[in-house]
Design a protein around this nucleic acid. Structure first.
Lengths: 211, 211
DNA sequence: TAGATTGTTAATCGATTAACAATC
DNA sequence: TAGATTGTTAATCGATTAACAATC
């Protein structure tokens, strides 16, 4: 059993991935922890520590091969797996996510949307159908859906999450402003936009009161 | 000069605020750190430490007055200030944010959208006009805009941010997948959706490989 | 008053940074 | 080989938790 990686490290991985992609796009194929440190803003020491949690990707005296490191981190993140995904809640946010092609590129294949509002059921977003939320359990089982994106109002989020959980989903990307209560084996990643905005508000407020 | 509050504490404040709101809605007016601990999932000790950064809101032998604490945290977060806000980039995400009424409630008043695509310029989202991005500097100065929400592609985000910065904006809520380089006095809060999704991907991947 | 619970100090834990031997 | 830079251990720093006197 490998040692547990801390959440702090995990959350830095996507940032490494993004910066390495940038380097490749700029035709840079080799980088030292010191150079990477200067562009990404972590200490060189932290970069070496972080990467060494997953393997010795570097070479003494040389640094890291950007392409190799990029691919390795991609594997660690599990990008390329092609997770079957549905969006629950076809309001503004659900539709925006459905329309955003970046998620497809990241290996999340959106298969359909689900919605309670009868006005939206039957419509299409791009080539994606909006189905009745009542049919979600069957759809998940029949189409091997692994991920659900919850974009419902907060009132229905927990109920939906319970139903998804019982239908055998593996992970939830939750945009509803609640903390979902779910079994241990189900992975949840929250995007709490209001909390982010309040943080911005705090920082502005603090800045203004400092003078 | 008051002691510096750590980012870890600041990011917990909106969560306190949300849970206290819930308690009020359930007509609960009094709570001890121990009881709050059980519903919010932080230790009672941490709750008391966190709150004491801002003042002695509790009472020995009694606990905390929910309404008072809610209002105090609201003040600390600066909710109620009524920040004038614009959205830059009127694509899917920009439109979704413009349509979401929650932000207005949180004291961020969206005044307009700005966009480079001529097909979108002149259209309206709800009652909000979409203006030409070229006019943003003048608009910001003339309308005392303090906050900008960046929903542009990553390629234009830094350029836009520079222009916003020069026009005298105070804060940026950045949804573009880049780390903006800006003067110290400008507050930036990032929402990196792809990073969040990659984190979910990692956790799923880890879960699946554990057995 | 007695019980409850805070505010706050001290102890612990974990994450980050520094240092340096190993080695390319 | 000499210089550069990693991988890794040790030191430091900061955040969380525990403990308890103060006090409502």
């Amino acid at each position: 059993m490998s040692k547990q990686i801390s959440m702090a490290v995990i959350r830095r991985l996507p940032k490494y991935y993004r910066y390495l992609r940038d380097l490749l796009d700029r035709d840079i194929y080799r980088i030292s922890s010191k150079e990477l440190s200067e562009i990404i803003g972590f200490t060189a020491s932290q970069i070496r520590q972080d990467l060494n949690n997953f393997g010795g990707f570097g070479q003494q005296g040389y640094g890291y091969n950007v392409e190799e490191l990029y691919n390795e981190i991609g594997k660690i993140l599990g990008i390329d797996k092609g997770y079957n995904t549905v969006i629950v809640g076809a309001g503004n946010l659900g539709q925006a996510i459905a329309n955003y092609s970046g998620f497809q590129k990241s290996g999340f294949e959106i298969k359909a949307l689900f919605e309670a509002n009868p006005r939206l059921i039957g419509l299409k977003i791009r080539d994606l159908e909006i189905f009745d939320i009542e049919d979600i359990e069957d759809y998940i089982k029949e189409n091997d859906i692994e991920i659900a994106v919850i974009c419902t109002p907060k009132e229905s989020a927990q109920d939906i999450a319970d139903r998804l959980s019982k239908s055998g989903i593996s992970g939830i990307w939750n945009f509803a402003p609640v903390d979902l209560n779910l079994p241990e084996n189900l992975v949840v990643e929250n995007v709490h936009l209001t909390e982010s905005l309040y943080t911005l508000s705090y920082l502005l407020n603090e800045k203004n009161s400092q003078k």
